[in-house]
């Protein structure tokens, strides 16, 4: 038993100091290794280049042709992010179900025997590994791979976002499903429900607000990622951005950056709005609510 006064005064902790010093050392070492030098901004050559770039930005390009084209690309960017996220949900959900660790004494090796126990762990680690692989490769790298596989255009961009987000959403979903109140899971199992029914009637309803919130947040991230997919030929506004950069058409760059900024802010606001709506919703089963509202709106026959 620990005495209360002991927990009040921790005293000098050598280990904590050691960890603190180690972290500080790591930061300084990394700064040295990456050529961290603020004075680079002040070098004559760099200053002149920056000046040229800044001067070129103004006035932004506003020719109708360019605006029309860039607007089309902005819409394409949005579309890539939406479809990419939708695909990611479709793949992530089943994978996350496989990657959800079931707890409870009835699933122990002693209770079930070796074979079911081993099968469960193989499934669990298999699904986790697939998710890790998807998540471990960044979007841009996926885009490069898919450009090779299916050619240039927005399609490889969609696949790239879907692949990376599958890894992220799958892991988040699985952890959500695992973290619900274990006693409620036990209550549901007590009815004789199988694990899929437990998922539908307990894990999903209990985690739905956070589930939707994570998914929306992922869409916001995908939106931002979609703006640079064009750098490697995978569609979206990045396609034009890299061309304008290479042609030193900085006034075009200005217009594009402004458009991207506006879009990102808009999507962030939309995501924020929807997420607070979901988290405050009186019933976290929007499907149920929406259905009922829909039915009420339909003309009575």
């Amino acid at each position: 038993m620990r005495k209360p006064e002991q927990s009040l005064d921790p005293g000098f902790n050598f280990f904590n100091w050691l960890v603190g010093l180690a972290v500080l050392g790591l930061v300084l070492f990394s700064a040295g290794q990456t050529g961290f030098s603020p004075q680079a901004f002040l070098e004559a050559g760099n200053l002149k280049a920056m000046g040229r770039f800044a001067a070129g930005l103004w006035p932004p390009e506003t020719s109708p042709d360019f605006l029309k084209n860039s607007f089309k690309l902005i819409v394409e960017t949005l579309e890539i992010s939406v479809i990419g996220t939708a695909l990611a949900i479709c793949f992530a959900f089943p994978l996350s179900v496989l990657a959800t660790r079931v707890r409870g004494e009835e699933f122990s090796r002693q209770a079930q025997g070796w074979v079911p126990w081993l099968l469960r762990w193989i499934t669990y680690y298999g699904a986790r590994s697939v998710l890790n692989l998807f998540r471990g490769i960044p979007e841009l790298l996926w885009a490069l791979i898919f450009v090779v596989a299916v050619g240039l255009g927005p399609f490889p961009g969609v696949l790239a976002l879907a692949a990376h987000s599958t890894g992220i959403l799958g892991k988040l979903y699985a952890e959500l499903f695992e973290s619900v109140d274990q006693r409620l899971v036990e209550t549901t199992r007590a009815t004789g429900a199988g694990e899929l029914a437990v998922l539908l009637f307990t894990r999903l309803p209990l985690s739905l607000p956070v589930f939707l919130s994570y998914t929306l947040f992922r869409w916001e991230c995908n939106m931002r990622a979609a703006t640079v997919l064009g750098f490697v030929g995978a569609g979206g506004i990045g396609t034009q951005l890299i061309i304008s950069m290479k042609l030193f058409a900085y006034n075009e760059v200005m217009t594009l950056v402004a458009e991207i900024f506006a879009l990102v802010v808009l999507v962030d606001l939309a995501g924020q709005f929807l997420r607070t709506r979901i988290l405050d919703a009186p019933s976290p089963i929007p499907a149920d609510n929406a259905l009922r509202r829909l039915v009420r709106c339909l003309p009575k026959v």
Binding site: L184, T187, T188, A197, F201, P205
Partner: peptide, 26 residues
């Protein structure tokens, strides 16, 4: 059937759904 001491309903589901959970085994 087992009625647990506490933690026995899913708060975000309707009463009807909570009651119908009794059928999940069938």
């Amino acid at each position: 059937s087992l009625v647990q001491q506490n933690h026995n309903i899913i708060p975000s589901l309707s009463v009807a759904h909570n009651v119908l959970m009794g059928k999940l085994g069938k």
